[in-house]
Amino acid sequence: ETGKELVLALYDYQEKSPREVTMKKGDILTLLNSTNKDWWKVEVNDRQGFVPAAYVKKL
């Protein structure tokens, strides 16, 4: 879809709370919100949640 910003997972991340999502290094995720410098909201496999901003980079 146009207008979607994507990020690349630089590291594996295992969710530690229900508000977070698990990702694997190399995953491409849809970026939903990056206003917080530490935690970015992403969508992966129809799930939305937060990942550490340092673990992903914008494509």
Score class of each variant (00 low, 15 high):
residue 1 E to C: 14
residue 2 T to A: 13
residue 2 T to G: 14
residue 4 K to V: 14
residue 4 K to H: 13
residue 5 E to K: 09
residue 6 L to P: 04
residue 6 L to T: 08
residue 6 L to E: 06
residue 6 L to K: 11
residue 6 L to A: 07
residue 7 V to T: 03
residue 8 L to G: 03
residue 8 L to F: 09
residue 9 A to M: 02
residue 9 A to N: 01
residue 10 L to W: 04
residue 10 L to Y: 03
residue 11 Y to P: 01
residue 11 Y to H: 10
residue 11 Y to M: 11
residue 12 D to W: 03
residue 12 D to H: 06
residue 13 Y to P: 00
residue 13 Y to M: 01
residue 13 Y to L: 02
residue 15 E to N: 07
residue 15 E to S: 15
residue 15 E to M: 12
residue 17 S to P: 05
residue 17 S to F: 06
residue 17 S to H: 12
residue 20 E to S: 06
residue 20 E to D: 05
residue 20 E to C: 07
residue 20 E to F: 06
residue 21 V to R: 02
residue 23 M to T: 03
residue 24 K to P: 01
residue 24 K to G: 05
residue 25 K to T: 07
residue 26 G to V: 00
residue 28 I to P: 01
residue 28 I to M: 07
residue 28 I to L: 09
residue 28 I to Y: 06
residue 30 T to S: 09
residue 30 T to R: 14
residue 31 L to N: 00
residue 32 L to P: 00
residue 32 L to F: 04
residue 32 L to H: 06
residue 32 L to S: 03
residue 32 L to G: 01
residue 33 N to D: 15
residue 34 S to I: 06
residue 34 S to K: 08
residue 34 S to G: 12
residue 34 S to A: 11
residue 34 S to Q: 10
residue 35 T to E: 15
residue 35 T to H: 11
residue 36 N to H: 12
residue 36 N to V: 05
residue 36 N to C: 09
residue 37 K to G: 10
residue 38 D to T: 14
residue 38 D to G: 09
residue 39 W to E: 04
residue 39 W to P: 00
residue 40 W to P: 01
residue 40 W to K: 01
residue 41 K to N: 06
residue 42 V to E: 00
residue 42 V to L: 03
residue 42 V to G: 00
residue 43 E to V: 10
residue 43 E to A: 11
residue 43 E to F: 07
residue 44 V to T: 15
residue 44 V to L: 15
residue 44 V to H: 15
residue 45 N to R: 13
residue 45 N to F: 10
residue 46 D to T: 11
residue 46 D to L: 10
residue 46 D to Q: 11
residue 47 R to D: 03
residue 47 R to W: 04
residue 47 R to G: 04
residue 47 R to A: 06
residue 48 Q to N: 08
residue 48 Q to P: 06
residue 48 Q to F: 07
residue 48 Q to R: 14
residue 48 Q to K: 12
residue 48 Q to G: 06
residue 49 G to A: 03
residue 49 G to T: 02
residue 49 G to K: 02
residue 49 G to C: 03
residue 50 F to L: 09
residue 50 F to N: 04
residue 51 V to F: 01
residue 51 V to R: 01
residue 51 V to M: 01
residue 52 P to E: 02
residue 52 P to C: 03
residue 53 A to S: 14
residue 53 A to D: 02
residue 53 A to E: 03
residue 54 A to E: 12
residue 54 A to N: 13
residue 55 Y to D: 03
residue 55 Y to F: 12
residue 55 Y to W: 07
residue 55 Y to Q: 04
residue 56 V to S: 01
residue 56 V to A: 03
residue 58 K to L: 14
residue 58 K to T: 08
residue 58 K to Q: 09
residue 58 K to Y: 09
residue 58 K to P: 11
